[in-house]
Design a protein around this nucleic acid. Sequence first.
DNA 1: GTGCTGCACCTTTTT
DNA 2: GGTGCAGCAC
Length: 727
Amino acid sequence: MKKYKKSTDLSWLDELNQAQRKAVTAYQGPSLVIAGAGSGKTKVIIYRIAYLIKVCKVTSQKILALTFTNKAANEMKSRLENFLSLSVKDIWMGTFHSIFAKILRIEGNKLGFTRNFTIYDESDQHRFIKEIIEYSGLVNKNYDPEIIKNIISKCKNKLISPDEYIESAETDFEKDIGKIYSIYNNKLWKNNALDFDDLILKPIELFSKYKDVLNKYQNKFHYILVDEYQDTNKAQHKLLKLLAEKNRNICVVGDDDQAIYSWRGAELSNIIDFEKDYPDVKIFKLEQNYRSTKNILNFAQEIVCKNKLRREKNLWTEKEEGCKINLVSLYSDKDESRFIVDKIKEEIFKNKKKLREISVFYRINSQSRTIEERLQKNNIPYIIVGGIRFYERKEIKDILAYLKIIANPRDEISLLRIINYPHRGIGKATLEKVKSFARKKGIELYRALKNSSRIQNLDKRKKTNILSFYKLIEKYRELKDKLSLTELTRCLLDETGIISLFKEEGSRESIERIENIMEFLSAISEFSRTSEKPTLENYLQEISLITDIDMWNDAEEAVSLMTLHSAKGLEFPVVFIVGVEDNLIPYIKRLENEEELEEERRLFYVGCTRAKEKLYITYAKIRNRFGNETVSLPSRFLNDIDMNLVNIIEMESSSRNDIEYRRKKEITVPKAEESFEKGQLVKHPTFGIGEIIEKSGEGEELRLLVTFEGNITKKLLVKYARLELLH
DNA sequence: GTGCTGCACCTTTTT
DNA sequence: GGTGCAGCAC
Ligand SMILES: Nc1ncnc2c1ncn2[C@@H]1O[C@H](COP(=O)(O)OP(=O)(O)OP(=O)(O)O)[C@@H](O)[C@H]1O
């Protein structure tokens, strides 16, 4: 690649087409770049930053660039650095969450928490809410923490405070949620902890309360750029509005067809509101796609243009037609994996593709397993991006919990996690006494440990146990600033005996855990070496906002496997999208309302548009889900596609064209579910006549337990079973 | 009071 | 195919 070293050399602008160049050079005032996949939106952001620095002589500290993942930010940085020879270390570039966490560390004391605050991830939140439900004194304690967590998160994304929620609550359920929400926030504060959503909310609070602070950051960030704007939420919108109010130099870039995070509170309406917020906005449309072949682009367009709620786009490419899209039908998920791995081999050996140029996308993480097994069998290097994050593994979270308490002793969730790990004779009953003591005295749990000698009717031995745990933590709190981070962690591991615990156990799983801990240790020393300020607090902050995608080294020679969501923003020469079946893409829980269904369609579109040269789409008839075999049909998104764009490969033993088959079947699916009742007789094409024993689920999910002739009992999904009612 | 084992229930996607 | 929890054995 060509490098542009001299700052007077402006020929790098020639790498942009005319529309892109317009978007790059209109650097003042509000800009909205709205364009389809692969049209160079991210490129516009990168070049705009270069333009600001090189041509407009803006100092890099004055630029704030917000991306969707840390990986995207790192990529931008390296492109600016290596290719446009810019120093990027002063640019504020990162995700909303990491940038504003950084600001909160600096300014948080104004809102009543200290700079060593803990960030609770989702499992911490879950435990936390569970704890609240148990102790909140609510009559009904049977609430599902997961549901409550989601409601609270939705509220936060929509800027609804606990008080506002309580005010509008009508049902008892809502009133209880309001109570829990309010306690939740209060307890977070007491724990000196924030959840993910707070990382956006708290800055809003900060800027609204303290105009001088707002002013400071408005003056700091003269130029704001936001990538993937279609997936921002109300809170983020508000935050941007506050920050951009003064200078109004804000450039957002997005594609409504790629909005796939509404379930996380993202609101497509932010794009429309942007035009309302800034009536003088300059709108730029990019229409040339530089990524995919004609066939791929046309196929993807055809998928997404069936959505009603979208802006019409006119995407085109100068690239060649390329291969047709391979539409592959298989009998089972096992066959699917075999097919994919065979094709990967073919791509590598015959077509001389590199492993890292190939990626496999799926709807849900659990689908990776069968493919993974097959790849292992064939000794093909692969990497799973996403799924359980490295830092979410149990053994790592346990060590992290120690480190978190050392950094922030008020963090009760981490405290509870490891107070009896490894076992030190502080069980449930003992803990209960300590907790109730803390509550009665109105003190933090950690302080209750210190004063545990004063707890009534507690065994003396237990008190000693508690106190020695307290002293252990205290010791490390003192050592924290004396030892390096690596030394501190090593000592801690030694003293707690966590590693020897696994060594003793000696099982395969334990060995794997030890390996993970070793990897964790090397990650810590890596951080100590590369970070400017390698403190415990900085380390904890960094890892709580880092994801698998961010850690993934895409230069490594390995096939990558990831969800369709994770694939957003990436590109690969060869892409496989697997499990393109109804109930998976679109996902079974998102079939009911039109908006969700459209989002599922967009998700599929995002997947297709990642492919540069070759796209395989596979679906299987039989899929193993939690040990049960389930029958699937090809995705409805494959209906009415232009057959000229696809190459149909039938790998299924019964060579029926399933798409045709599906169309026929739709007519024969019984409409009224009420028509099936216990005791009635039905006829099945394969099993013959049987009696309905049990009925469960409803709608698409309606299942019947039927005993057929010969005493064969089957659980059938009515939707697929083609049952005929006998009167 | 503590710790283990077997059972039930589920799980969409992620900063 | 995993995780969390209830109930049981020590
Ligand atoms: N003017 C151009 N000339 C050549 N290649 C380009 C040009 N603009 C963009 N590209 C290339 O097209 C590909 C897609 O660009 P980019 O990732 O910026 O698009 P995008 O609009 O952000 O895509 P998406 O929204 O689908 O993630 C990249 O490989 C990029 O280098």
